[in-house]
Simulated scan of single mutants.
Amino acid sequence: MTGERTNGFWDAVDGRAPMPTAARTLGWTLIQASPERGEIEVSFEATDDFLNPAGTVQGGFLTAMLDDTMGPALAATLDPGLYGATLELKVSFLRPAKPGRLVGHGRVVHRGSTIAFLSGELLDASGQVVAVGSATARILGTG
Rank of each mutant, 00 (worst) to 15 (best):
G3Y: 05
R5T: 04
T6C: 11
N7A: 11
F9A: 03
F9K: 01
D11V: 02
G15L: 11
G15R: 11
G15P: 08
R16C: 11
P18Y: 05
P18I: 05
M19A: 06
P20H: 09
A23H: 06
R24P: 02
T25D: 03
L26Q: 00
G27S: 05
W28R: 00
Q32P: 00
Q32A: 15
Q32S: 15
P35L: 10
E39A: 12
E39V: 07
I40Y: 03
I40E: 01
E41H: 04
V42A: 00
S43N: 04
T47M: 05
D48Q: 13
D49Y: 03
F50G: 06
F50L: 13
N52W: 09
N52L: 12
A54T: 14
T56P: 05
V57C: 10
T63L: 10
T63I: 00
A64W: 00
D67E: 13
D67P: 05
P72A: 03
L74P: 01
A76N: 08
G81L: 06
G81K: 08
L82G: 01
L82Y: 12
G84A: 10
L89W: 01
V91T: 15
L94H: 13
R95Y: 07
P96E: 06
P96N: 12
K98G: 06
P99G: 07
V103R: 08
G104T: 08
G104K: 01
G106E: 02
G106T: 03
V109T: 14
V109N: 06
V109F: 09
H110R: 15
R111S: 13
T114C: 06
I115D: 07
A116C: 12
L118R: 08
L118K: 09
S119H: 07
G120D: 04
L123Q: 13
D124C: 04
A125G: 14
A125S: 15
G127H: 06
V129W: 06
V130W: 02
S134Q: 15
A135M: 07
A137K: 03
A137H: 11
R138M: 15
R138S: 15
I139C: 14
